[in-house]
Design a protein around this nucleic acid. Structure first.
Lengths: 97, 97
DNA sequence: TCGAATGTACGATAACCATCGAACATACAA
DNA sequence: TTGTATGTTCGATGGTTATCGTACATTCGA
């Protein structure tokens, strides 16, 4: 559980996680979507664009999130598609009780 | 929010926080209570005893938890009385949705 | 009042982390 | 097939953190 919290303890990484979640559930405002992402697809690329981090840093953060089990990323050609693991989120919810 | 997660991202500090919570709500098993604490009182002292950390380290961790708003500590004579801030916990719950 | 117990403040140190750029690998389009 | 875009890996570097021991302040009991 500490591992999960650690993954969310970095400001940028938390933002990245939130973005992935919002892209996934489609709760992002249209203009943000246009600026920042292409829906759930192209997570990586667009994250770089809107978060002002180098590609290597984004790669590292994504790996941390995966490592904590918070997201799962699969490759689709050149791009990455990342999605949130709801069961881990639920585990956190359960823990906080 | 990242600050809160950071406060919980250390294994020992998370354990400490859980102890404080359990001591507070009285959900700790009697034998643990005997070993580890005197109810909500003497949080600090007993934390040192059962967590295998120096006093200065425990002091530091408590300060981090306070800093994140997760707990509030007040002094009672020689000892510290710490309690969990439920509203911050609720904020975390709300965030995870 | 004196001494023990409790908690805090400080400085040191080793470990960890965030970030970058460069070099690389892969995929796709021209 | 060649170039461009995309992601990954690596090493460097500066910053942060966990932990300790020591020294200090406060409280309380003898």
């Amino acid at each position: 559980m500490a591992k999960i919290f650690k993954a969310l303890s970095n400001e940028k990484r938390l933002q990245l996680f939130k973005n992935i979640y919002e892209w996934q559930v489609g709760e992002m405002k249209p203009e943000e979507t246009l600026q920042c992402c292409d829906g759930i697809k192209k997570t990586f690329t667009k994250a770089c664009g809107c978060m002002d981090l180098s590609r290597s840093t984004v790669s590292h953060h994504l790996k941390e999130l995966q490592n904590a089990g918070l997201i799962t990323c699969i490759r689709e050609g050149q791009t990455l598609v990342c999605k949130v693991n709801q069961d881990v989120i639920d585990a956190v919810k359960t823990f906080i009780d």
